[in-house]
């Protein structure tokens, strides 16, 4: 009787431990899933927050650029046009003065003609800077060709431009974005990079229109955070976002800059 009891006891003990092991492992599993889920959700939220933060920065940079552009236009108008028109108006008043002889009159009119011509020329230049007319009339290809020519004519930089994409079917409002990106890149290469050779290539790669931009300038460490937050780069990024494309930017000190971006 005792022996049977002892055996029963042992069976109960074993079954108890098996059950205990089952239950505790099950608990560990449940807790693991519970906490994991929480953590994964938290990670997702953090990621989204980062994205939103980035979008905000882009928006901010757009606003800042807009203000700066306005400032520049205001300055151009003030320096190049207002000042000249001022002198024109002064000269016109001079014409009113009595007892002017012919040579004086001629001198004043010549002055006025010369100044109005300069003002006209300046206003045309300002308008051209704001939106190159060739872009609207002849499309992106011609626009870039003109841009490249302008840079080549300075003799400090040699720009190579190759294009195998037909931009005629491409929506006209997107031409300007690509044009501005290249303008910004070229300006950066010249101003900060002191580049002497630049190559711009448009190709179709894996079914997407792709632009490869390479210069041989000073370059910088593109892996460092503070170098990625420049206003120009942010603007380029938001334009590429707008075009529905991706970009990769690589640069190392003394190895120039390489930028590849694609767009739809």
């Amino acid at each position: 009787m005792n022996a049977i009891n002892l055996e029963n006891n042992e069976i109960i003990q074993v079954v108890f431990f098996i059950l205990l092991a089952f239950i505790s492992m099950f608990l560990v599993l449940i807790m693991f899933f519970y906490f994991s889920r929480k953590k994964i959700v938290q990670i997702e939220v953090d990621k989204k927050n980062l994205e939103i933060e980035h979008q905000k920065e882009l928006l901010n940079s757009v606003l800042i650029t807009q203000e700066e552009e306005r400032k520049r236009i205001a300055q151009d108008l003030h320096d190049d046009i207002s000042s000249k028109l001022n002198v024109v108006s002064l000269n016109s008043h001079l014409l009113k003065t009595p007892n002017l002889n012919e040579t004086e009159q001629l001198e004043i009119t010549n002055n006025i003609i010369e100044l109005t011509q300069k003002a006209l020329e300046n206003s045309r230049r300002i308008a051209h800077d704001l939106l190159p007319p060739v872009l609207e009339k002849f499309g992106l290809h011609a626009g870039i060709e003109e841009l490249v020519e302008e840079f080549n004519s300075t003799k400090t930089v040699k720009v190579l431009y190759e294009n195998s994409i037909d931009f005629e079917s491409y929506p006209i409002e997107k031409h300007l974005h690509i044009f501005r990106i290249l303008q910004e890149l070229l300006n950066n290469s010249l101003r900060h990079g002191k580049a002497t050779e630049v190559s711009i290539q448009f190709t179709t790669f894996e079914g997407r229109k792709t632009c490869t931009y390479i210069d041989n300038g000073l370059g910088f460490d593109s892996s460092r955070e503070e170098n990625q937050k420049g206003l120009g780069m942010m603007n380029i990024e938001s334009r590429i976002n707008f075009l529905g494309g991706n970009f990769s930017f690589t640069s190392k000190p003394n190895e120039g800059v390489k930028m590849v971006f694609n767009f739809n």
Binding site: F17, L20, A21, S24, M25, L29, K39
Partner: peptide
């Protein structure tokens, strides 16, 4: 047996949890 393996299972799950994602 139970006492010596259960904590290890818990530690192991903790490590999995720590490195999630």
């Amino acid at each position: 047996t139970y006492l010596t393996t259960m904590p290890l299972i818990i530690y192991s799950s903790m490590h999995l949890y720590n490195n999630l994602g």
